[in-house]
Design a protein around this nucleic acid. Structure first.
Lengths: 267, 267
DNA sequence: CTCAACCCTCCCTCTGCGGGAGGGTGCACA
DNA sequence: TGTGCACCCTCCCGCAGAGGGAGGGTTGAG
């Protein structure tokens, strides 16, 4: 039987951390003295503590560590670990994208995005909509678009999405993805046929992956601000070339439409 | 002049986050209304906000972001960014090591480390010592060892280190690195000639990089516990083959000496 | 039997983000 | 000129996972 201090020496985990792991149900001491509360560990628990330590080095949340430890079946356990490694790889990809984008931003050559003012007529679309958080929007978008694809056989234009301002200002908002159609389709699942109202948009096109789309948003927003046009509704993205057209992110083209009130007299 | 909400839309940062960045001195609004406290931003601040956003994606702490933004000289700024990228790479290496080690740990084949009981005589050494935290110990070690190398011309054995138990149990403790010598050397900088006392050690050898040295610590500690030998002092590491001998981490050999009281009658 | 080293619990701190309460502002429209 | 509503403000609390430290009980060697 080892005291918590001895166990800490052998595992290189601090006494505090061991107590926290006990409290979290990750590493129950072999025995706890009922009167004094002293924790006593068994030498057989050393490898368990080391597995925990390795998982924490990989930033696996304590709750997931618990789940992994409670999983007896080696295959299921390996799957849980693999799932986390998957997440690490995605994070690595995001990190690399951020590095590339940062280097571009720090070079003092403004991109100079072309902005155009456009009158968009009302449009019949098949749509899926929901209120989601900023963190969930990517996953939700993928599901909604897949569902749209199963229902809409003959789209008459590229897919698009309407993004409530609150999504950006407060991290949660109303989102609608749509595919333009010629004739109404029956309501299936979450898909509904609706008519998007006509709009006046300031439009810019973003080329490449969506990691850096905020740069184009910034340029477009700046243009709108410079031209003193009031904002009046959700932003409208149109996926001219997207993941469904080519897997090469560099070839994607996304049109961003920023709603404005026409200030000049021409109607 | 843009309100905080408009600025949030253009930069894809939440209103809350912008307020926090203001408070932290990262992104001062172009104007703050003295009576209402309303923040007003300039469109020219959009790229700045985007740089902050990219740095935060790279997990640069707000304090460092501030430092980077306050640095006018592009070269110095690039150096700060490069420094952080360096840290990211090190972290990546640690992550990969943790993955490899985890896979080994989850395979149910115990390594089976050979442990030996050894009487070590007193030894004259040139040493550098300090009280450091667990997080700092690697950097401190590198500096101390480099300083030792400049003073000691003729070591009579491999370098080693004494690690106070508190370093492991409480994350901060006394550490001493040393090189054995035949004759005392003059005190230069932090280097002193001292005599390490004789000791009784349980000894095991760890092969490979230090990422996984806790596994050998665990095996050794378990052996000591199984043989009911009381611990009585700092752990002693000896770097039989280390980074100064070969850059190939897989070839390193580190001897770990765990102080014990001899229980058998033989003296 | 004494005393130091150890252990316990409880509460606070840090970082960077979000939620929500309670209350003041700005501006279009009547 | 009021009214209403969207917007803005500050202040406090929550989360994760680690450390710091206070105040007090236990253990065990001399």
């Amino acid at each position: 039987m080892l005291t918590i201090g001895e166990f800490a020496q052998m595992t290189h985990l601090s006494v505090r951390t061991l107590r926290r792991y006990h409290e979290a149900g990750l590493l129950e001491p072999a025995r706890v003295d009922p009167s004094s509360g002293y924790r006593y560990y068994d030498a057989a628990q050393i490898p368990v503590a080391q597995v925990i330590s390795r998982l924490r080095e990989l930033d696996v949340p304590l709750a997931n560590v618990r789940k992994i430890l409670l999983t007896q079946d080696p295959a299921a356990r390996a799957a849980l670990v693999a799932e986390h490694l998957q997440r690490l790889e995605e994070q690595l990809a995001r990190t690399q994208a951020a590095v590339a984008s940062l280097q571009r931003l720090l070079r003092p050559e403004p991109a100079g995005v072309a902005v155009e003012l456009r009158q968009v007529p009302e449009q019949l679309v098949a749509a899926v909509e929901a209120t989601v958080t900023h963190a969930d929007v990517l996953a939700w978008y993928a599901g909604a678009m897949a569902e749209l694809d199963t229902v809409v056989r003959e789209p008459v234009g590229p897919a698009g999405g309407l993004y409530d301002n609150a999504l950006f200002t407060h991290g949660r908002g109303h989102v609608l993805v749509h595919v333009p159609i010629a004739e109404p389709v029956p309501a299936v699942g979450r898909v509904r046929s609706i008519e998007l109202p006509a709009a006046e948009l300031a439009v810019a096109v973003h080329g490449g992956a969506h990691d850096t789309i905020d740069v184009t948003y910034g340029e477009l927003g700046r243009w709108v601000a410079d031209h003193a046009l009031a904002v009046a509704g959700p932003v409208c993205e149109t996926y001219l070339v997207g993941p469904r057209d080519t897997p090469v992110a560099a070839h994607w083209r996304t049109e961003i439409g920023w709603p404005v009130f026409r200030v000049t007299g021409a109607v």
